[in-house]
Simulated scan of single mutants.
Amino acid sequence: MPGFTLHPFTLLTASTVFMILPVTVQPAITTPINAALHAVAGPSDATDRYRALVRRLADNDPRWEVQTAAWSALISDVPTAVTDFLSPGGGYEKARARASQNASRNALVISRTISTTTATTSPIVHLTAIRASYGTLAEKDRYVRTGLKEAQDLDAKHSPVEQARQQAQQDRDYVADIALHGSGAWVRAAAQRAIQKSTDNDIQEFFKYSWASAAGCDLQAFRMNLVEQDLAYRHRLAQLIVLAQQAQHAYEQASEAAKAKAAAEARLAWSTAADTAAATQASWLANQQLAAAQAQSWQQVHDFAVTASTQQDWPTIADNAAGTSGSWSDEVAWAQSQAAEWTAVYESAKASADALPGANPTVSPSPTA
């Protein structure tokens, strides 16, 4: 096998680590978020932008509970169903809570299975439970629903566990390199486990199952973190825009004696909204760069796999790598579209601030795309 180094993977940041933190933004004003954003977002329709996000959740969210709820909002006859779904306390947060409960239940079943079986007494159940414990949410759910029973049936028939042939040293070296420079936190962790255990079976398990599963976990974590990040910014910006609109109205209604003070307050409110939009746009540029690095890394895996010649199933690995690279390329496109959207919001809010008396338009330049 030719040597191959995955050092570009070190470009990836810790934002791919699987952390789902509940968003608890409590808006002081209950004006719908789509109405607030529509006031500063330019000619495009705010509901369409929120519909695009809900459609993304319906198509790509790793949690079937969120996917189902998102589709229900999309096909609903209620005019506000899409924006209600994304509002605090709405359908997304309820579906997320259900998904969290189900994930906790699945994790408990799997952990109990591991603790109550051994590789000697129930080899297939024990092996597949360990495999599922590191899997995606969908893999865990599938294992609890059907996979555990299938493994139990195989153990009952005394089906032998497949023994791996001696793994080539080149393959061990490759896994060791992935453990250091792999494309994401979950992939690196999977490779590290294989290297630490270091048996032929563990190396084979990595190539046959763990690598692809860990890649799915990295993508899953990225997408789930993205929606939490996005909604937190949207909810916060909606509040700031409402406050800015109120300050703008107060300025317009103020007496001549109070006009200058009211203008300064309105200008500050619009500038705060603009700064928040700029920070959001910057975060989307960072997400775009991270996704692009992942897409490139997996393309390199594909290119390596098509020429590799050890005993691993390299054609399947190449296909998986190509699919994963394509998924990350989709994330690049999504991040680009979101960065453009938030740039437009920033520019509109900044224009509102600059239109007020006493403004200095050169103080806060537009974020760089």
Rank of each mutant, 00 (worst) to 15 (best):
M1N: 02
G3W: 05
F4G: 00
F4L: 06
L6Y: 12
L11P: 03
L11Q: 14
M19R: 06
I20L: 08
T24H: 12
Q26N: 13
Q26G: 04
P27S: 05
A28F: 11
I29C: 01
P32F: 02
A36N: 10
A39I: 06
P43H: 03
R49H: 11
V54Y: 06
L57A: 11
E65P: 04
E65V: 03
T68R: 02
L74D: 13
D77I: 00
P79W: 04
V82W: 10
D84M: 02
L86E: 10
P88L: 03
E93G: 03
R96I: 00
S100P: 00
N102E: 14
N102P: 00
A103K: 01
S104C: 04
A107E: 14
L108C: 02
L108Q: 09
V109H: 08
R112F: 10
S115N: 08
P123L: 03
H126S: 15
A129E: 12
A132K: 00
S133V: 04
T136N: 06
L137H: 10
A138S: 14
Y143V: 00
R145L: 13
E150N: 01
A151F: 05
Q152Y: 07
K157S: 12
E162T: 09
Q169S: 13
D177R: 07
I178T: 14
L180W: 05
G182M: 01
W186L: 10
A190V: 09
A194M: 10
I195C: 14
T199P: 11
T199H: 10
I203M: 12
F206A: 06
W211C: 07
C217G: 13
C217S: 15
L219A: 13
R223G: 14
V227L: 07
D230W: 09
R234W: 09
H235S: 14
R236Q: 15
A238W: 12
Q239D: 15
V242H: 07
Q245Y: 06
A247G: 05
Q248C: 01
A250I: 01
S255D: 06
A257W: 09
A258T: 14
A260L: 04
K261M: 07
A262Y: 07
A263H: 11
A263K: 05
A264G: 05
R267L: 09
R267H: 10
T272Y: 08
A273Q: 02
A273Y: 02
A277T: 11
A279L: 12
S283N: 10
S283Q: 11
A292I: 04
A292M: 13
A295C: 07
S297K: 05
Q300C: 00
A305I: 03
T310W: 05
Q312N: 12
D313P: 04
W314R: 02
P315I: 04
T324Q: 11
G326L: 07
S327V: 00
A333N: 11
Q336N: 05
E341D: 15
E341G: 06
T343A: 09
D354V: 01
L356M: 06
P357S: 02
A359M: 08
T362F: 09
S366D: 15
A369Y: 12
A369R: 09
